[in-house]
Design a protein around this nucleic acid. Structure first.
Lengths: 273, 273
DNA sequence: GATGAAGTGTTCACGCCATGCACAGTAACA
DNA sequence: TGTTACTGTGCATGGCGTGAACACTTCATC
């Protein structure tokens, strides 16, 4: 890795000193994601490009052909530069992925105050839609705990959950619950398209999915996995497209569960893990 | 890809005919995972190895150094054979991964009958432990809907949930809820080791995590993400190792949520999505 | 203004990966 | 005895992430 002083990052210059910590000791991409890099364009020639441009191009590629298409050679090629040139802006592929993922999160929604359940519902739906819009985000391995957008989403939710009186780690667990549900739901939707989407799809794909169904049914029964076989055969699966597959149902279960806990604790005022 | 008639697969020969579906139309690995391949060792020389051996070696490698270590050259090398030779047993890397993942699931636990909540709890805990034991399983992209072990786990849970009276897709959603919680919890645990594990770890790693904490705290505050900053600072995070981080708490919320739904529907007898 | 340090993108290079093809050898069947 | 099907090997390709050397450009300083 060549020593690197990346050029300016997005709007916020982050004037905070906070250099009390060795940036090189942090996981790759963390410092970059939070814009902890020098901004002053110093000696040499002006960089012809920018981290933002690189990430934008990588996003394009990922949108078009999945996360695997966001390779250094491909990104560089589209920008019109050598793959190695990217290392002047980004320390490693991993860092690029961290930045890419953070950008894909975008800004969190503004949540209604005073009704934590409504807020959590909105938050979950928005996140779900985010994942549907950028499915490749599910394929980016998260190697870094928190990035700015990421953290902003979390902050919004936790702020909304505060009035419930839950302890810090409980709120965090709830956040993970909702996050993972959105992720998983989006992943599921991606792998098993809705009937409507199926109708739009080409006949080959339709037939392929039918083949899978038939094949699995046979195998499941011959292995005596009857409960699963039955479920897969349920007419509901062949019916018209439900608004959100099981997403809303699952979300409601989670929120009910939280609500039970919250209202139970309300009377006690002695929360415990 | 060379045409391939793989040698025998694990115990169950799956005599079922069920060849009414074109195996080549299925997603890669599906047919192989369900053992839908010819068994008879026909003309040529006896194969010196077996799919089982290959998968076992791949598992070893993944256990030792993560999923990336389960590459064709590395697996082949440890077996003592050329990378290309593996293609006589496995159609592609992807198929290898499918088989690898299926093997890692292992057999599902026997669940107590008559108490769906106890059953679901046991199931979730066992799955959680499975993921902790084989963290790389979280890194295998699931390209195939159901594999035998996978399906067996699902079957066990759904069988246990049946007495609740939920509809098929609702049970399926519940299963996904629990599965995703176990996955996510295990992933979390992997990324943020318990205090006890930390104490055992080398001082460098400890210091690195402290650096991350300090860095993030500064950044979060300077971006006004105070709720998150507060949560991360909560003394509970520095306290002694909790039995299961937030896993049990989250699990209890999910189950509470399901219970609310189930007991609400019990009186109505008109379940709806 | 000259000079040197720092920063730019390129070229060459390496090692790793998944995978295709041709081949020599081997084992069963005709 | 061939013929045939199947085995593992060798050679090859194109992709990837990344390191090192280099020529070139800009600015800070003398």
């Amino acid at each position: 890795m060549t020593p690197r002083k990346s050029p300016g990052r997005d709007g916020v210059p982050d004037h905070a000193p906070a250099q009390d910590v060795n940036l090189d000791a942090l996981p790759p991409g963390l410092a970059a994601a939070w814009g902890a890099v020098d901004v002053e364009g110093r000696r040499g020639p002006k960089p012809a490009h920018s981290v933002e441009e690189i990430i934008a191009v990588a996003t394009e590629l990922a949108d078009e052909e999945g996360i695997a298409a966001a390779s250094l050679p491909k990104v560089a090629g589209r920008i019109g530069v050598t793959a190695n040139a990217l290392y002047r802006y980004v320390a490693s592929k991993e860092e690029l992925l961290v930045l890419l993922a953070d950008r894909a999160w975008g800004e969190p929604p503004a949540l209604p105050a005073g009704d934590w359940r409504a807020a959590a519902t909105l938050w979950s739906h928005q996140l779900f839609e985010r994942f549907l819009a950028r499915p490749w985000l599910l394929d980016v391995p998260t190697t870094v705990p928190l990035t700015p957008h990421n953290a902003a989403w979390l902050d919004a939710l936790i702020t909304a959950l505060k009035p419930t009186g839950m302890a810090a780690r409980q709120m965090l667990t709830c956040a993970y619950l909702l996050d993972s549900h959105a992720r998983y739901g989006a992943n599921l939707r991606r792998n098993t398209p809705t009937p409507a989407a199926l109708r739009r799809a080409n006949p080959e794909r339709q037939q392929a999915m039918r083949a899978v169904r038939v094949f699995l049914d046979g195998r499941l029964r011959s292995r005596n996995l009857l409960a699963v076989a039955e479920v897969l055969e349920d007419p509901a699966f062949l019916a018209e497209e439900p608004a959100h597959d099981g997403f809303d149902f699952g979300l409601a279960r989670i929120l009910d569960g939280i609500e039970v806990y919250v209202s139970r604790e309300e009377g006690l005022d002695t929360p415990q893990a």
